[in-house]
């Protein structure tokens, strides 16, 4: 009988230990994020995990390949130390559910006496200017003193979508630009949209019309049917400097230029040789304010 009790105790102990080793469940919203996605929330369900029952749960997260690899949340200055985790790493409780905690971005914290806001995962790991460096991050949940922790072997990790260039029917270079910068507009007819005149696919002599506008939509000046260049990426491009696009009407200046309309035109020829002009829709983009 005694032996049986001992065996049952060992088995029960084993199950108990297993329960305490359970991985925390987590949900990332939105479900697919990259290093620059904003307004991200991660909800952790600690039921059955080593930190189940704690009122204060901390996150210890790291991104392979970075140095230091730990998130800036876990230390206020110097380098990360397991023994002295920052209060910034404390997860927020989910109201009404004591077993759930969350990490929401943007998150504003104080580091080394300075208030800092992390808008995305890249900024959480200090690579906001080089987000391409972070592909995934692993995490564990722990108590403040580190005596309790969920497995830290990478079993719980968030994989980020790669930051990839996406070809577009129309784009500008740079992607965001001010009215004082050199601007290149590009059209990719291989990505012709369904609502467009499909004859554009076979059009030649592609030209472009560019119009500069005030914030209220009033036209300031325009250039009609400027020649385009066909690039190695099979895009039709036109480069301009807003200040040099044309003569500004009296009473207007470059400072009034807030947005831009761009329309491409091409020619298709019938078998009889008659030319027909086909046009894209009007693309609009706004100029940024840069110093």
């Amino acid at each position: 009988m005694k032996k049986l009790i001992i065996i049952l105790t060992i088995i029960a102990g084993g199950f108990g230990a297993k329960a305490q080793n359970a991985l925390p469940k987590f949900t990332v919203t939105p479900s697919e994020i990259d290093a620059l996605t904003e307004n991200v929330t991660i909800v952790f369900d600690v039921t059955g995990s080593a930190v189940d029952g704690l009122t204060d749960v901390y996150i210890w997260a790291w991104a392979p390949g970075l140095s230091p690899s730990e998130t800036l949340l876990v230390y206020d200055q110097g380098s990360p130390s397991w023994g002295s985790i920052s209060q910034n790493a404390k997860l927020d409780p989910v109201p009404g559910d004591p077993k759930k905690f969350k990490l929401s971005l943007p998150k504003t914290v104080t580091r080394n006496g300075v208030q800092v806001t992390f808008n995305n995962v890249a900024e959480l790991f200090g690579v906001g200017d080089t987000p391409g460096k972070i592909k995934e991050f692993g995490f564990l949940l722990r108590s403040q003193d580190g005596s309790k922790q969920t497995p830290g072997d990478g079993a719980t990790k968030v994989t980020l979508l790669p930051l990839e260039f996406t070809p577009a029917y129309f784009r500008t270079f740079p992607a965001k630009v001010s009215n004082k910068d050199v601007v290149t507009v590009l059209l990719n007819l291989n990505l012709l949209e369904s609502g467009e005149n499909q004859k554009l696919k076979i059009a030649g002599d592609i030209t472009v019309s560019v119009t500069l506008l005030k914030a209220n939509g009033t036209e300031i000046l325009s250039v009609e049917n400027a020649a385009t260049l066909f690039t190695s990426q099979k895009e039709y491009s036109y480069t301009f400097l807003p200040a040099m696009l044309g003569a500004f009407p009296a009473g207007t200046s470059l400072n009034d230029v807030a947005k831009c309309h761009v329309k491409f035109s091409g020619k298709v020829y019938s078998q009889a040789g008659a030319a027909e002009t086909v046009q894209t829709k009007v693309f609009e983009f706004e100029f940024q304010q840069y110093n």
């Binding site: 987000p131 270079f173 740079p174 992607a175 050199v182 690039t231 990426q233 480069t239 040099m244």
Partner: peptide
Amino acid sequence: EQIDAEAESKNFPEFATRKDLTNVF
């Protein structure tokens, strides 16, 4: 040369990152 700093930070391909403006006009 003109460089799109955001594209550069994302390791985008060269054609989406920098443009030689020397003889563009």
